[in-house]
């Protein structure tokens, strides 16, 4: 379901037993037919324009920027400086690694938190279903930035969360795992991962919910009738049938999370910076556009490879 499908342009090959528009003279009106053929293209036009202006043009512009060299004072020129890529990887390798590590952990946490919730809403919520769905998307009513700033207050040193976790000695455990340090939550990897998980959770829950909700309840009954215990019903029927939602949810979480820089900036420290922070710094502070563009392309390429491998592996096209 996640594979983009291009609608086949209708009528490119007219059925053989019908007269073609050129020769056809029988009543139907040859004038109406070409217009009908064009209809799908007209419908695609707004999206096509949008993509052209906001994706294709910047894509090529940035692609050319990424192989430029020079400086802000003298101006940048295309010199096919592919060394920009090598330099970016050499300098910011740890940022890339951290990005994908944090994004993977956040995606996994989203799945672990989101699946039971989506399952409950889809099958057990009854008349509370709509209310719970509204609550899932309610955070969107506030800006992403404000919410992350709020987390800064929640996790602040000396705040209630730190106090409680400290008295329960949870912070000692997480410190041992290298997730926190100095009895702090803010400015630790844990805070960044929590922020990512929190911010992208709805993108996991909604696709999961929509694929779970489509499962016919009589399939559960059929499985139970055929000697499957409740846990087996989930393992053999519910989970396989929710795979489209799992794939869509993990992609919608993982991709934006790996490029995110707000959480790392507001909740992290210089030691927890992700590749998004590095790109932002190069673009807006250092003003080294070629380096920033090269990093963007490396990020895009890695995501593309990861996603392709993942979708191959899960084989969603086999599913309903």
């Amino acid at each position: 379901m996640t594979a983009p499908s291009v609608p086949a342009p209708a009528g490119t090959a007219p059925p053989p037993d019908r007269p073609s528009p050129e020769t056809g003279s029988s009543g139907g009106g040859p004038e109406t037919r070409p217009r009908k053929r064009l209809t799908p293209y007209w419908l695609l036009l707004p999206a096509g324009l949008w993509l052209a202006v906001f994706f294709v043009a910047p894509f090529f512009y940035q692609a050319s920027t990424s192989v430029q060299s020079g400086s802000l004072e003298e101006g940048f020129r295309v010199t096919w400086a592919f060394s920009n890529y090598a330099d970016a990887l050499a300098t910011y390798g740890p940022h890339f690694l951290r990005s994908f590590l944090y994004a993977s952990i956040a995606t996994l946490l989203c799945l672990l938190i989101g699946y039971p919730l989506a399952y409950t809403i889809a099958f057990r919520a009854g008349r509370w279903r709509s209310l719970l769905l509204v609550m899932v998307i309610a955070p969107f009513f506030t800006s992403f930035l404000i919410r992350t700033l709020a987390w800064k207050t929640i996790l602040s040193d000396g705040g209630p969360v730190v106090g409680v976790l400290e008295s329960l000695h949870v912070l000692d455990v997480t410190a041992l795992l290298g997730l926190t340090g100095d009895d702090r939550l803010l400015a630790t990897p844990l805070a960044v991962v929590c922020g990512l998980t929190y911010n992208f959770l709805p993108f996991m829950i909604l696709p999961l919910y929509s694929s779970l909700e489509r499962i016919d309840l009589s399939l559960h009954e059929a499985a139970r009738d055929l000697y499957a215990e409740p846990a087996t019903v989930f393992r053999k029927v519910t989970f396989p049938l929710s795979m489209p939602g799992v794939v869509a949810g993990t992609l919608l979480t993982f991709i934006p999370a790996s490029g995110d820089y707000i959480n790392a900036q507001l909740l992290g420290s210089p030691n927890t910076q992700m590749v998004g922070n590095a790109i932002q710094k190069q673009f807006l502070n250092v003003l080294d556009y070629p380096a920033a563009a090269a990093m963007s392309f490396i990020l895009m390429a890695i995501i593309l490879v990861v996603v392709t491998l993942y979708m191959r592996r899960t084989g969603t096209e086999e599913l309903v």
Binding site: D216, S218, L219, E221, A222, D225, V237, L241, E318, V320
Partner: peptide
């Protein structure tokens, strides 16, 4: 065992 009204075959 039951034969269900809409058959309830496992689509996957």
């Amino acid at each position: 065992n039951t034969v269900f009204q809409n058959y309830a075959l496992f689509p996957h």
